[in-house]
Amino acid sequence: MVEWLKLVDKARSRSIWMLMYCTGCGAMELPPAMTSRFDMERFGIMPMATPRQADVILVTGYVTKKTLKRIIYAYEQMPAPKWVVSHGSCPINGGVYWDSHATVNRLDLFLPVDLYVAGCMPRAEANMKMFTELMDMIAKGEARGWEEYVKNRDYYKENQRKLFGYDLVFTDGRSAL
């Protein structure tokens, strides 16, 4: 059974579909990673339009309070296993927008982040390193942020409630998650 799961993890690491939801300016560095010079599709990494078919969500830049709501909605629609990559310095501590009235400084208070890429902004080489690192982590079974989110649901939901002032609820009345 354990061997079988290892094989599944290995297979998952070679077919990462990332959600095409990009915040801020870091998305500018993804087209070089997609196109012929770096060509991330050789690793099986592919952009995907809907959260329900995606495996990884890239938060590519500053996170405003308004955007974070959409990120959380998108993240909770994704099927497990799912991963969050924080890209650039803004989701880590606010970056150059640390005193903005609109941005949220720390992403990891509200979502479980598996991997950080530092830099303002990270170059395409750093992106490729991030993708290979993420593949390694998935193949070894180390990227377990989605389990953390379920285990520490109260912690994350409390933080989100403190930030927004109310519970996030889907439009059909269902509570998020």
Partner: peptide
Amino acid sequence: DPVQYLKEHPMQGAGY
């Protein structure tokens, strides 16, 4: 004053 605003909203200004 954005800094004062972040002090009043600590979840938003956390981390710095």
